[in-house]
Amino acid sequence: MADNDFEPKLVGFLCRWCTYQGADLAGTSRIQYPPNLVPIRVMCSGRVDPVFVLNAFSRGADGVVIFGCHPGDCHYQEGNYKAVRRYNLLVKLIEQLGIEKERLRLEWVSAAEGARYAKVVKEITEEIKQLGPLNWGRTEEN
């Protein structure tokens, strides 16, 4: 499965209060990390509708990452806890539809953790590279 030329397409939903700034910090600190993840800024990880995730998969994403504030740090008190509840149920649902659970991740990255953001993106890119392309839509017949 592992194809050396395969560059996974990843979609990241980044909470604007923590991870989006963490990603900014990774940039201004000149930390090198793979360019595979397309960051999408959202108001809160709790704003990430499962529909966003399914749309990303159906339109060609090989992996999706939801980034939020560490537990207890949510700008809206408990948006990230809602994200955890949805994430766990959504993982179960996509597995039933034949999408490996490794393709959907939930990660906590604060505004101060630029290095951690770069590390997480690197790890996930590697992992999805090993897993291979999802090719949603191309496996569909009739």
Binding site: P50, V51, L54, R86, N88, L90, K92, L93
Partner: peptide
């Protein structure tokens, strides 16, 4: 399905990840 999942998951009455997994 995704919309129901979204609404339903937010009703789960716990913030503890292990407990969430157990209910799910």
């Amino acid at each position: 399905g995704a919309k129901f999942l979204s609404a339903f998951a937010s009703m789960l009455d716990t913030n503890d990840e292990e407990e969430i997994k157990r209910i799910v």
